[in-house]
Amino acid sequence: MLKLEGVSAGYGDFQALFGASLDVQAGEAVAVIGPNGAGKTTLLRVISGIIPLREGHLSMEGRPLDRVPAHRIIETGIAHVPENRRLFPRLTVEENLKIGAYLPAARSRFAERLDFVYSLFPRMKERRNQLAGTMSGGEQQMCAIGRALMSGPKLLLMDEPSAGLAPVIVQQVFDLVRRIRSEGYTVLIVEQNIQQVLKVVDRAYLLEVGRIKLSGKSADLLASDEIRRAYIGL
């Protein structure tokens, strides 16, 4: 479904990604794991068109995305749940969801998708007239996922969904990810919380200083000595 081949990118003089390649098949959940500063967020930002590709190729269902501007990525079926939620804090929950269905194609199915998101997250229905910025971190994460689902995406990009949340809430967020998976969405998730995320996804790539170092089934990675020693601390 999504394919990255030898992708390099960076900010100004600083290069954050060096020839990273990965692919995500339809129906899969894939994680990109790695420490702080490995380039995980940059990888998602390249896919979303927020920062330009310097080298390599990027395609979604065979359609090249190399030169597609950020606001047209969503038309290809990719929705981004950005790091730290990035909701529109002064708008209500429902207005945030409405903006998620900004595209004309999504607008016509707004009511139906809103029902779907509310059935998935009844809490959001209770809070629909509350300002998004006044909710707890876990609720904001729900709202951010809901906003992404409003466009009717095929692939959901999730950037550090557990970042900045209390441990109890982190559990809830990973439950959310499982729910999304069981609804049939393809998910590409970037996480530092390696032990937790590997329990949720099928496969993972280990990114270190901008390069893919390892990849494999999550069970294998969980069992591998390198990962255990360096990242899980066992």
């Binding site: 501007p69 529109f88 906003r147």
Partner: peptide
């Protein structure tokens, strides 16, 4: 409130 998040939902900022 957020230009990147706006672009990601399809708004031509």
């Amino acid at each position: 409130s957020d230009e990147d998040a706006s672009a990601s939902v399809g708004i031509n900022v």
